[in-house]
Nucleic acid binder design. Structure first.
Lengths: 157, 157
DNA sequence: CCAGTCAGTTCTATTTTGGAACTAAATAGT
DNA sequence: ACTATTTAGTTCCAAAATAGAACTGACTGG
């Protein structure tokens, strides 16, 4: 199977990765959440080739994650801003970054600290169940299959 | 900059993506969390080429996310199991999948539902601050720079 | 002896990426 | 008027990664 056909699968994760799962894309989103909006600034900060950056920004736009909005006329120039849908990916970015903070940081410690404004402490990100409010670990979850795709997705061995 | 040098950056997210940010890798992890452990099963479920699968499993191993453990001798065969570090990536998988459930599912609805055993309801994943227990959105976070890398990471415009 | 299982490796063709140069549409300075 | 500068790209080619298929090795079971 070609990667470009991955969005044809029913799996929600596969479909999401069809938009954000390419090389560089999640780093582009990292910078979006740090306030970066312009092509030149993405390019300089990431070190990605302009060609690839252009492609990724277009895909993020098509996926409804970024909006391309003009910030000046004459010459017309546009910048990229997170949509509401895009902001919903924040937990993904935070958990990936926190995993790196925990397991991959050097002696100097992590380069950035995320402070939770409400409590003033560094954010210790956890997965929470919106229903009961409890903190959730992998083993607390049981997976049920949508009967429509019965037998295709879960393993039963 | 080449993608393979991305782990040289101080950014924790970049370092994490050096391990899990390649095509197919997060889908391999999805299957790990569904209980898949064997090469043939990953290959059949994902449709990824054996070559690439072999490469990704090796990188996940080297990154401490999977353990390769023998499940039989004669002929010796090995399977791949999530380590504790690997299980810590569960929130990433859940949030990516939930984003797809929300924005990309077809009329039939999402293919899988994750049930929170403790409360019996479908998981509505949220980002929680481990300090105060509150639910966190992107705008609740302020970012501070480690003085060691002063000026290199944040934008100040 | 032959077919089958499992976890890969090897091979070639196609696709994607990296690096550099180039373009377009202006503005600012000399 | 000419030149340099800014910004957001596009174009070109070489190098690297991926897709698809076949092949290997170490067995087991009939």
């Amino acid at each position: 199977m070609r990667w470009q056909d991955i969005d044809q699968q029913p799996c929600s994760l596969a479909r999401t990765l069809a938009i954000v799962g390419d090389r560089w894309t999640l780093l582009v989103l990292r910078d979006c959440f740090l306030g970066v909006r312009r092509f030149e600034q993405f390019q300089e900060r990431l070190g990605v080739t302009r060609h690839v950056l252009s492609d990724r920004l277009r895909k993020l736009q098509e996926g409804g994650i970024l909006d391309k909005v003009p910030y000046q006329q004459r010459p017309r120039r546009e910048e990229y801003r997170l949509t509401a849908r895009g902001r919903d990916l924040y937990p993904v970015i935070v958990h990936l970054a926190q995993w790196g903070d925990t397991y991959l940081a050097g002696e100097e410690g992590p380069p950035l600290v995320r402070i939770h404004r409400q409590c003033g402490e560094p954010l210790a990100a956890q997965l929470q169940c919106g229903h009961c409010g409890e903190t959730v670990a992998a083993r607390d979850i049981r997976v049920e299959e949508n009967p429509y795709w019965a037998g295709e997705i879960l393993i039963n061995n």
